[in-house]
Amino acid sequence: MSEFEPKIVAFVCNWCTYAGADLAGTSRIKYAQNVRIVRFPCTGRIDFMLLLKAFEEGADGIIVSGCHPADCHYTSGNYHARRRWMVFKDLLDFIGIDSRRIVFSWVSAAEGAKWAHLVNDTVSEIRNLGPMKEYKNLENVSSNKIGELIND
């Protein structure tokens, strides 16, 4: 059996991390191919529902990254995002969704190498955690229940 290849979705801001990832590319830095990048205007735009949708669509891990504090293109988007993630992470922990599968980071436009490290680290961490089974099992619960209802 081939080794488990995690699917990672990265939600990144246009002004810092997306440019940082671009720099990693133009600098010819090699990093894991497991990441799918989704570009946003700002980390302040990244709604928590998007993260839940990513898990629903089969992501095993998520990276959320944007400008360092004091660097936001819109002055304060990342500060708002920081508060949102502090609260959202606590909710995930309380509900029992593995918050280690969501990696938050600040990657600036100059940090192509940091981006490559971040992706590589995340991929190896998620590889150790294994596939995100919880959401897939939910789907089974759903169909089983409906099946039971029909049989009754």
Partner: peptide
């Protein structure tokens, strides 16, 4: 969640 402080402290953002 619609206000912030520069000194908000978290321990998980890399």
């Amino acid at each position: 969640l619609s206000h912030y402080k520069l000194e908000d402290k978290e321990n998980f953002i890399r």
